[in-house]
Amino acid sequence: MPNNNYTLITGASSGLGKEFAIQCARMGRNIILVALPGSHLQSVADNLMLEYRVQVKVFEFDLSNSQLLKEALQRMTELYDIDFLINNAGVGGTSPITHTSRERIDDIIMLNVRSTVLLTHQLLPHLLRHPQSYIMNIASMAAFTPIAYKTVYPASKAFISSFSLGLKEEMTNTGLSVSVVYPGPIMTNSHTSRRIISQGIKGKMGLLSTPAIARIALKKTLAGKPVIIPGMMNKINHALMQLLPLSLKMRIVSREVKKEIPYTLSV
Rank of each mutant, 00 (worst) to 15 (best):
I97H: 13
S101W: 05
A89D: 01
A89G: 09
S101I: 06
I86L: 11
I109E: 02
I108V: 14
I86T: 03
G93E: 14
G90T: 09
N88E: 01
L85C: 07
Y80E: 02
D83V: 01
V91N: 11
R104C: 10
I109L: 07
I105G: 13
S95L: 05
R104T: 09
G92I: 00
R104L: 13
L85M: 05
T94Y: 15
E103L: 08
T94S: 15
I108L: 13
N88T: 05
I97Q: 14
D106G: 07
I82W: 04
S101D: 02
I97C: 11
T98I: 10
S101A: 02
H99G: 03
G90E: 05
G90I: 09
S95Q: 14
S95N: 15
L85Q: 09
N87H: 04
G92E: 08
N88H: 03
G93K: 04
S95R: 14
E103K: 08
R102L: 12
T98S: 12
G93M: 01
G93P: 15
S101G: 12
F84D: 07
N87F: 03
S95Y: 08
E103Q: 13
R104M: 10
F84E: 08
E103Y: 10
S101T: 08
A89L: 08
Y80I: 00
T94Q: 13
D83G: 01
I86A: 08
Y80Q: 04
F84Q: 08
I109N: 00
S95P: 11
D81P: 09
I86M: 00
A89R: 09
D107H: 07
I108N: 02
R104Q: 12
D107L: 05
I82D: 12
G90V: 06
S95T: 14
G90F: 11
R102W: 13
I109H: 00
H99I: 03
I108S: 00
N87I: 00
I108P: 13
N88G: 00
I105K: 10
Y80N: 03
T100H: 00
I109Y: 08
A89T: 09
I97W: 14
N88I: 01
D107I: 01
T100L: 02
G92Y: 03
A89P: 12
S95C: 11
R104E: 14
D81G: 08
E103R: 09
G93C: 01
I109T: 05
R102F: 14
P96C: 01
